[in-house]
Amino acid sequence: MPQNPFFWWAGLITALLLAPLLPGVINKTKACFVGRQGPSLLQPYYNLHKLFRKDCIRSSTSCGPLAWAPGLELSALLLALLFLPYANQLSPFAFTGDAFLFAYLLGLGRFALVIGAMDTGSSFEGMGASREVQFAALTEGAFFAVIGFLAFASRSLNLSEMLSCPLPANVPTVIAAVILAAGIAFIVMLVENSRVPFDDPETHLELTMIHEAMILDYSGPDLGFILYSAALKLWLMTALVVLMLLPGDLASAPVLFILHLLGVLLGGIVIGAVEAVSARFRFLKLPQFLLGALCTALIALALTVIGTGGGR
């Protein structure tokens, strides 16, 4: 597979520019499902533009973290963006073990957000933060099981190679395993990005939200930072799922680039469809569900191992 760094950089810049489009796509899909016209696809851009021009109001209870949390989250996500192999081109920043850095950078962003939320002393934000740490801790296990599967299937510890390697043709069970693991990665993506059925970003009750409840006290550019980071995270995780499903030897780099872009947008449509047709789970059932996801990812790994056969 010939490497073309141009397409990687193009993929990165596309991610940075088009990330806010993804929430737009989701909302549009949802609106179509219920027969409304819905907001414009570009609405998230308008929102961001408006927020960056606005003034800022800050809680008097805060003692600092509220101010620096959005920046921290954004920088963690910007850095995490560097490790994905866009269009199946190896990232120039890749190194052995960058998958762990990727996972922990997402963790850093979350930590900042939780600390920022607790800084306000608001009971609603405390509630959201409490739920966030709970579900994130359990999702982490499932995510690492998926990474374990990817590492075994690609024989590499490097996120770029894991996601861009061609499917091993000699393993008979790998397609089943990849589909399973991508399913789990999709679930992880939904949890990490607080989408239905794990969290409802658009309910009118703060009591039932996770992510949105944590950012109640942000305003102006700070809120803009957070919305942009959320969009980036959504793009990042969707791209991860899409890249898992795209074998690296499928086509030439430009075609892969287009496929990857379309895949992410299609991912947005799928998320929107899931949101339109399903309701939020009970919070009490969520840990069990996440544990099930972890177990399923391990089974995907076992499928690959048994398919590989020899070695024991």
């Binding site: 809680s59 008097s60 920046g71 703060e206 550019p221 700070d222």
Partner: peptide, 27 residues
């Protein structure tokens, strides 16, 4: 470094703005 840069950008952005404090919104 990135955090520092973003912090600086935010600071510059907010310097021209009205920065107000109020009690926690709490819905």
């Amino acid at each position: 470094a990135l955090i520092a840069v973003l912090g600086f950008l935010r600071h510059r952005q907010l310097r021209r703005k009205v920065l107000d404090t109020g009690c926690t919104w709490d819905c």
